[in-house]
């Protein structure tokens, strides 16, 4: 497997943190992913672009373990985890957000982040409150503040505005100190000000964190990304630096063409 990364070497030539090889996903007769390859090195900020239906979220689901691929393999930090259930992947340092923000609506902001921390520290089956709990709660409040939700610690997640839910999701993902952070359209539905917030947050992440970002907002994607992968119809069309991708005529054709179709 390691021979392959000569085709797309990670930064500094190090072994890729995320290594996707020939992954196929079929939903009935529909091939959502047609043998896709993807590498991401440690600390790399990789944006995945593509029109609706390109298979970006499916690829995320495969890497996060929510979908088992029909073919191909996925390795994270050198561990083959093609068939590993999603609940075991956080131990490999994987954290993700969802296209439609998934928070625990009946719980407060603090509780949501607390749960992310508790899952990460494997304290989630303790049926009483301990001193460690209090430390975890304090930490959760700290994370809430770092995603600008300090004033909403006791607000139920279900009562948050759309942008705040995205901030909360990001907080829950960051709380687990991931090595691989996967963000599925984190800027969608955000106001201009909230987008600025988001970019600041992502830029403030520790350098060693690998970020995979699906984003329709080009401005956000190009500001964050070191490298851009463009997908269409379950395949990689092109990959390269933001500048190279921006000037690639194929990208314009695919992206703008199908954008025009959908609108």
């Amino acid at each position: 497997m390691t021979d392959d990364h000569s085709t797309d070497p990670g930064r500094n030539g190090a072994a890729p943190v995320v290594l996707v090889r020939s992954v196929q996903v079929a939903f009935g007769g529909l091939l959502a992913l047609r043998g896709i390859d993807l590498d991401a090195a440690q600390g790399e900020r990789l944006a995945i672009l593509g029109p609706n239906g390109a298979g970006k979220t499916t690829l995320f689901n495969v890497i996060a373990g929510d979908i088992t691929p029909t073919g191909g393999s996925v390795a994270i930090k050198g561990v083959d985890c093609t068939r590993l259930p999603s609940r075991r992947r956080p131990r490999l340092g994987v954290a993700r957000t969802y296209q439609k923000a998934r928070t625990f609506e009946g719980l407060t902001v603090a509780d949501n982040i607390y749960l992310a921390l508790a899952g990460h520290r494997r304290r989630h089956r303790v049926p009483w409150r301990t001193a460690a709990d209090r430390a975890l709660r304090a930490e959760a409040e700290g994370v809430a503040e770092s995603v600008w939700l300090g004033d909403h610690i006791e607000t139920d997640a279900g009562e948050l505005a759309h942008g705040q839910k995205r901030q909360l999701e990001l907080g829950m993902a960051i709380a687990t100190e991931p090595d691989v952070l996967m963000l599925d359209e984190p800027a969608s539905g955000l106001s201009r000000g909230e987008r600025e917030h988001l970019v600041d947050l992502l830029e403030a992440l520790p350098e060693k964190v690998t970020v995979l970002l699906i984003e329709h907002d080009m401005e956000v994607a190009f500001r964050i990304a070191d490298r851009v992968v463009v997908m269409a119809d379950g395949e990689t069309v092109t990959a390269g630096t933001p500048e190279a991708v921006r000037s690639d005529p194929r990208v314009h054709e695919i992206y703008l063409g199908s954008e025009a179709e959908t609108s």
Partner: peptide, 14 residues
């Protein structure tokens, strides 16, 4: 309560 609200999310948190 997290399991009640969103089991998929809970699994992705480990």
């Amino acid at each position: 309560q997290g399991v009640r609200d969103d089991p998929v999310r809970m699994a992705s948190l480990g």
